Amino acid sequence: MSLAYRVAYRIGITPWEGAGEGGGAQLDALLDREQAGRSAPFGRAVDLGCGSGSHTIDLAGRGWEATGIDNVPRALERAQARPGADKARFVLGDVTRLADAGVAPGVDLFVDIGCFHGLDDEERSRYADGVTALASPTAAMLVLAFTRGRGPLPRGATRADLARWLSGWDVVAQEAADTSGMPKPMRATEPQFYRLRRAA
């Protein structure tokens, strides 16, 4: 998928970006829940597969020490050109090799908007190892994943897939994602938001 994303960003065809912005109100509500009863600064947050960085910048604006990681240079160039990018940190790196990306342990929140669901089994294993190694004892994750892939779309991931690969985490909530901003092929994948907590 990495090559496909590089080509897509180079030619400017990135429908997932608009889809992510279309579901912004739902993500805002989920982040509000993570922040409930707390005051800023909230801790360290990592946006996995951040693309052009809109969610990373939103996290930083909310009071998180936010880092976005992506392996597509053109996407990060767009991220760094966005208003508010100076409040966030962007790292060119591989989400399946987080130790090599220079992210220190003690991450309180991971946000994954459509990254895990496109990884193959070996990549999912490395991703899970990296995330778990960096997580604080009370860390949370928010994951948006297609339930099933279609055609050229990512393969998808179910609640069972998350439980299998992220065995050091508990899946504590699930809700259907807002698909109002998504093209019809994406809506057909029945995307879901999952909330995970670091297992005790």
Results as ranks from 00 to 15, higher is better:
124 R>V: 03
114 G>D: 10
78 R>V: 06
167 S>H: 12
174 Q>D: 07
72 V>E: 15
165 W>M: 00
82 R>Q: 11
86 D>Q: 12
185 P>C: 08
32 D>R: 15
16 W>V: 13
143 V>A: 00
169 W>E: 03
187 R>H: 04
118 G>Y: 13
192 Q>F: 05
36 A>H: 14
196 L>K: 00
157 A>I: 03
63 G>R: 02
119 L>Q: 10
90 F>C: 00
53 G>L: 09
109 L>F: 15
46 V>W: 14
148 R>N: 10
35 Q>R: 14
32 D>T: 10
195 R>Q: 07
92 L>R: 09
116 F>Q: 05
152 P>T: 09
23 G>C: 06
78 R>S: 13
137 P>M: 06
92 L>M: 09
127 Y>E: 11
163 A>C: 00
24 G>T: 02
17 E>Q: 11
32 D>C: 08
78 R>Q: 15
146 F>I: 06
32 D>V: 07
52 S>E: 15
140 A>K: 14
109 L>K: 15
102 G>H: 03
71 N>C: 02
85 A>M: 10
59 L>T: 01
88 A>Y: 04
111 V>I: 15
169 W>H: 04
139 A>I: 12
133 A>H: 07
173 A>H: 02
136 S>Q: 02
149 G>S: 07
147 T>G: 15
141 M>S: 11
109 L>Y: 13
147 T>I: 03
184 K>D: 02
